[in-house]
Nucleic acid binder design. Structure first.
Lengths: 190, 190, 190, 190
DNA sequence: TATGAATGAGTCTTCATTCAT
DNA sequence: GATGAATGAAGACTCATTCAT
């Protein structure tokens, strides 16, 4: 008489699936409205209200988990980009193109904005917003020096921030010029 | 519906001062905690609760006024920097130094963070976070081309964002290198 | 240098005009929304907020004055009808026609509804809702006996109430039949 | 935003009973004062303030539920009357007597008044005030024609309204005469 | 283990009324 | 006489969190 659930079914007896559903729902709500309440999350995840506090001892925990998930996704996305840039041996035009495409994706930009915004208001979340940066600097060391890697990272942060504030991301030409300049070897220096 | 007013003494009759006090209190609270409630503002400004809604028809209005004030202050600060850079004919080392000093000021950084954060969550506030950018690009056109001006602006946004997330701002050396690279004239292009 | 206001201008120095403007504004608001606040009345009447309490010592007074005005207007309207019926020597078809026309006027019905509604909630206002009734009974005594007059009045109240609750007033045929029946002389009785 | 809950004892676990208690309390308050606030209802029903919004998502919902209950009770009462009249084969004297008794009950009249009053101010509630009417017309079709049924219904509405406005209901004689007239068969017609 | 009923602290907001000017 | 600033009481409503079941 008991249902034999396929693994895909999110059944009441699959704690991990519930947890994931809650995190996913919370992440979606953060992206959509920025607000987060137990009730909203429960409704979105189609899970009883009590589950939200059963699986996460406070709403802050749930928010942190959701943001961590967003940070992971962002990280993955940027890792792919960094990988492709590495394959192009650090060609700034390749980076510019990939970055422009990335920033043309509204959802991505919203995720970045949510991360920045929450991190700015809660120091405990700041490491999440920096995660991609550290990863990027490391990966970039394959094709440039650390200082330049930091500067490129900072520039990318700036471009991303800009995309969250302006209606459109920085145009490809400007982007290409900026990255090219940052990557060009210094001839000599004073 | 009722109003049994004890004949308490009324406060000074200086509407403008009250308004300013409210905005100032709200700005401080935004910097300190990010949260904003009528009660907190009233307590901080030492005015009765009712005053907060008498002067600002909604909490959103009050927040907007406070953020506008912060944006103005940031704007002024950056205008001074831009002015000094203009006097140095766009010397990136000068800009780097001033920027580094600016970002070493915790309060400034917090103000920037608050602005970004609020703007990210409320589109109606985004123009405030972009205000300094537009002003900067305009002023920078005195000593560089528009594309470079945009790139410097974006880079500054990135550095600022970084300062709000990391414990310390980008070090002066890296900053100088980045700005120098962005400002160096392009030799030739493909 | 002082403006010589024509009598038509509602100038600050015409207390009676102000009073009337306030009452009129209040009546309009009662008809439109049922709610009444000092601020709304002042804004509608284009009069300073302070005037509302200067001319009426409480909001209840102002509401009462507004309802009295509505009651007067209703009274006038119905007096005209009663007059015409009297001229037709109490012909129920005439009364039915006039009544139907009266109840087809949305504003009239709203005024009646406001009066009933306020009277039901505040006994001090009940006499206003009965004012037309007393007048009607008196006028009707010209063409019918008192008992019938009362019954007609009650019936009219019912029809009016019905108009305030239903989407459309009672149809003319039904109305005519009802009034005719009520007015028909009793043949004999048990 | 916070919730330092003293570990007070929770109340009985009987949702339905709570719901009923709230509706009952709200109905009583409507009858007594016409005003309705969460606080008043909670106090009257002896439940915590939070319960009022837990069970009814808005005060309007609660008011509607209370009025629906009143409408039901009125309906029941009038159905009994209609039933008795039907048994008397539509004898107007029977109807008059029952109606007079009904309207001599202050509570009944107050319930009617509350229903009319609220319906007049909120169109969404109008169907409640019309409920008895529709039921009455239907039941009356057993002993009279539809037009007459409507007219009797309207007349009853008028008498009821009158009772809510005047100190005393219409006297039995007048009532009997009115109903008799409305029910008397028409001899001939034009 | 899981859940939904329960609740009180706290939120924004409205507003009649008062009164200094 | 007029007026608009002032204010506190109160309103509807939200919600994290607790806990009996």
């Amino acid at each position: 008489m008991s249902a034999t659930n396929g693994a895909a079914t999110r059944s009441p007896r699959d704690p991990e699936a519930r947890r994931r559903a809650l995190v996913r729902a919370a992440a979606e709500l953060i992206l959509e409205s920025g607000d987060l309440t137990h009730r909203q999350v429960a409704a979105r995840a189609k899970v009883p209200l009590g589950s939200t506090t059963y699986y996460f001892s406070s709403l802050g925990d749930l928010r942190a988990a959701a943001l961590e998930q967003l940070a992971d996704e962002i990280n993955d996305e940027l890792a792919v980009i960094a990988q492709q840039v590495a394959e192009a041996d650090g060609d700034p035009r390749v980076l510019a193109g990939l970055l422009h495409a990335y920033l043309s994706n509204t959802d991505q930009v919203r995720a970045d904005a949510a991360l920045y915004s929450n991190a700015a208001q809660d120091p405990a979340l700041r490491h999440l917003a920096l995660r991609w940066f550290d990863g990027f600097v490391q990966m970039a060391s394959a094709w440039t020096d650390p200082v330049t890697a930091h500067n490129i990272g900072v520039y990318i942060d700036g471009v991303t921030l800009h995309a969250t504030l302006a209606d459109e991301p920085l145009d490809l030409t400007t982007l290409t010029r900026g990255l090219t300049a940052l990557l060009r070897p210094r001839d000599e220096e004073a």
